[in-house]
Simulated assay, not measured.
Amino acid sequence: MSEHEVIPVSMARRRIAAAIIAMLVLATAAVLVVQWAQAKQAPSASGVETASPPALAGPRIVFRNTAIGDSYGLVAAVPLQDPGAKRTLSALACDRVDASPTRTVCLRTVRGVLSKFEAVELGADGSVRQRALPGIPSRTRISPDERLVATTSFVSGHSYATIGFSTETVITDAEGASSGNLEDFTLLIDGARITAADRNIWGVTFTDDGRTFYATAATGGRNWLVHGDLEARTLTAIREGVECPSLSPDGTRIGFKSVSTDDAAAWGVSVLDLVDGTVVELPIEGSVDDQVAWLDDETLLYGMPREGEPGDSDIWAVAADGGSAPRILIEHGWSPAVVRR
Rank of each mutant, 00 (worst) to 15 (best):
S100D: 02
T252K: 15
H227T: 13
P336Q: 10
T162W: 02
V259N: 14
S2G: 15
F63L: 06
A42D: 09
A119M: 14
A42F: 06
E49P: 11
P245R: 06
G47L: 05
F213I: 15
A192T: 12
H4V: 02
E183S: 05
R253C: 12
R139A: 08
R14M: 14
V339L: 00
T234C: 05
D198G: 10
P336N: 10
R129F: 13
S52V: 10
A266D: 00
T104W: 02
A265S: 15
L282T: 12
T205W: 04
S138P: 04
T252G: 10
S159P: 01
D314E: 01
R147H: 00
K116P: 08
P83T: 07
L187I: 10
V226H: 03
T234A: 05
S71W: 13
E307M: 14
T102R: 14
V155A: 04
L133W: 00
A19V: 03
W294T: 13
R340F: 00
E307C: 11
R96H: 01
H158I: 10
S90H: 01
A337N: 03
A119W: 12
D262R: 07
P137G: 02
E183W: 01
E285K: 14
V279C: 11
T195N: 01
R340C: 00
F165E: 09
G176S: 07
R222S: 11
L235M: 11
V288C: 04
F256G: 05
T261V: 03
D70Q: 10
T216F: 03
R87W: 02
G308S: 06
R340K: 00
R340M: 01
A218W: 00
S248N: 06
E183T: 11
P54W: 03
G135N: 12
D145W: 09
S2C: 10
V242M: 12
L225E: 10
L24H: 13
H4R: 01
A57F: 03
G228A: 13
A51F: 04
S115A: 09
T207P: 15
P43Q: 07
N200S: 10
L329P: 15
G126L: 06
I189F: 04
T169D: 03
R253P: 12
D70P: 07
G58I: 05
V292Y: 07
S246M: 04
A76Y: 03
F256A: 11
S10D: 13
P305C: 07
T88G: 09
A215D: 07
E168H: 11
G203N: 13
S270Q: 11
R199S: 12
T104L: 07
A42H: 10
T66N: 01
T88M: 09
C106Q: 02
T169V: 05
V271K: 03
S115D: 08
R199V: 08
G277S: 09
A320R: 08
Q130S: 06
D321G: 00
H4I: 04
Q41M: 12
V105A: 11
L272K: 07
L114Y: 14
E285P: 11
D297R: 12
Y160C: 03
